Computed example of a mutant assay.
Amino acid sequence: MNTESKGTLELTAAMALSGTLGIFVVESGASAFNVVFFRVLFGALALGGYVLARGYFRGHGFTPKKLSLAALGGLFIVFNWVFLFESYENTSISVATVVYHTQPFYVVLLGALFFRERLTAAKAGWIGLAFAGLILVSGVTPADFAGGGGSYLLGVGQALAAALLYGLSTIVTKRITGVRPHLIALVQVLVGIPLLLPFADFGAMSGTGADWGWLIGLGLIHTGLMYVLMYSAYQKLPTTKIAVLAFTYPAVAMVADWAVYGHHIGLVQALGVPLIVLASLKVSLAKSPRTVAGSTPAPAPVASSRR
């Protein structure tokens, strides 16, 4: 098996794992804050063990500035997870995941806003098309804005907020050079432990029982194993293939949501999916006028981010 084929298998596996993340979150029965707290806790143990075993702490490349940027990215990434997981409860895994996959457009817009990266007319057009698709996928109608949408409208907003936070984390983390992405991810999950500790409700976990397995799985599988596979694949694949394979994540998430919970998006909503996919690919594969070396965060697919 050649290097690119191996990378393809690794990234496909990572994105497929990411697509099952929502099942683990819902089945754990825990609140979003508790889920994220234990995800970063168990994820830090998994990533820390891997980094230690590979000897990555030696010559880590961190400076005070780079460490601060990694910590700031961690702040954005952990609260991005909180919003995304809350969105699962108020909408569905399928809708939340597709709405959340507008992350690349936020990265482009934030880059133009904060770093004066050129926003071409073509990119602006694709972003406009993507948000037209977003409106279709969300299923939100004018009546929802008049007060009839309730928690569903809130859930769509939470998924959008999660995507925005992911975009902020990506922008910040792209400014870190000369540091292995595994180490950046480790810092981000370590930062999440004290950040989320005040919000964690340990009393609510007393009757969790066998559901601890879902939380441990989020840390070991969806943070430790998934990140290792993803970062290994990135070193072997061209950008074009990474961008295409990233859509394994929402595809698996939608199938899993239908298979386990019977949720599926309607016909009109389905029309918006190819618009988002096409626009995301066009934006992701467009040549950037300014190339910045570094790594993107991975909460969710890298997006994920990540994811």
Rank of each mutant, 00 (worst) to 15 (best):
A112Q: 05
L113D: 01
F114T: 02
F115G: 00
R118T: 15
R118L: 13
R118F: 12
R118I: 10
L119M: 13
T120D: 12
T120L: 10
A122W: 15
K123F: 01
W126M: 09
W126Y: 15
W126Q: 01
I127H: 02
G128V: 11
G128F: 08
F131N: 06
F131A: 02
F131G: 03
L134R: 01
L134K: 00
I135K: 10
S138P: 01
S138I: 08
S138L: 08
S138H: 04
G139V: 01
V140T: 12
V140P: 01
P142A: 05
P142H: 12
A143Q: 11
A143E: 14
D144P: 00
F145E: 04
F145A: 03
F145P: 03
G148C: 09
G149N: 00
G149Y: 00
G150L: 08
Y152W: 12
Y152K: 04
Y152E: 07
Y152G: 07
L154N: 12
L154P: 09
V156I: 13
G157W: 04
Q158W: 11
Q158A: 14
A162I: 11
A163G: 06
A163T: 01
L164K: 02
L165P: 11
Y166F: 15
G167D: 01
G167Y: 01
G167M: 04
G167A: 07
L168D: 01
L168R: 03
L168E: 00
S169T: 11
I171C: 06
V172K: 06
V172P: 00
T173C: 11
K174F: 13
R175C: 05
R175K: 14
G178V: 04
V179S: 00
V179N: 00
R180Q: 15
R180H: 15
P181F: 04
P181V: 06
L183T: 04
V187R: 00
Q188L: 02
Q188H: 04
V189R: 04
L190H: 07
V191F: 07
V191T: 14
V191D: 02
V191C: 10
I193W: 07
P194E: 06
L196W: 05
L196I: 03
L197Q: 09
L197Y: 13
A200E: 08
D201V: 08
G203C: 09
G203W: 03
G203E: 13
A204E: 15
G207A: 13
G207D: 09
T208E: 12
A210P: 05
A210H: 13
D211E: 15
W212A: 01
W212N: 02
G213M: 09
G213T: 08
W214A: 06
W214P: 00
L220T: 09
I221R: 02
I221T: 04
I221C: 04
H222S: 06
H222N: 11
H222V: 04
T223D: 00
T223Y: 02
L225T: 03
Y227R: 09
V228A: 08
V228C: 01
L229T: 03
M230D: 14
Y231S: 10
S232I: 07
S232V: 08
S232F: 04
S232P: 01
S232Y: 02
A233D: 07
Q235C: 11
K236C: 11
P238Q: 14
T239C: 12
T240D: 15
I242C: 07
A243L: 05
V244A: 14
V244E: 10
V244K: 11
V244T: 11
F247C: 05
T248P: 02
